[in-house]
Amino acid sequence: MSVIPLEHILILASILFVIGFVGVIVRKNTLYILMSLEVMLNAVGVAFIGAGSVWQQADGQVMFILILTLAAAEVAVGLALLLQMQTRFKSLDIDLLSKLKG
């Protein structure tokens, strides 16, 4: 049994997730949107690790490793797309992407 109650861990995870979500919604710089996505993924990791430590199961950490893999792949693709955006539009404003067709 963990010393820290599960409710507080989940509250921490929710606060971090909401901070990241607000960042994704509010910011117009695409780089900040990617960083806020990292904060959100991190919050999900907190929830998994906390649940795993409360129930004394290693499954939570396995899920955290999979989230880590997902974050690495997402950042690689996202930053490469941002490089394309910078060379094409000379800006990182997300509103410029509304001109895309298709």
Partner: peptide, 27 residues
């Protein structure tokens, strides 16, 4: 502090060490 030192090490090495360096390179 939650009793997951392996995940803490992975967080420092992979997240703060690798993914954020990718951000720095992109910037």
């Amino acid at each position: 502090l939650m009793g997951a030192p392996f995940a803490a090490g992975l967080e420092v090495i992979v997240y703060a060490g690798a993914i954020l360096v990718l951000f720095v390179f992109a910037i």
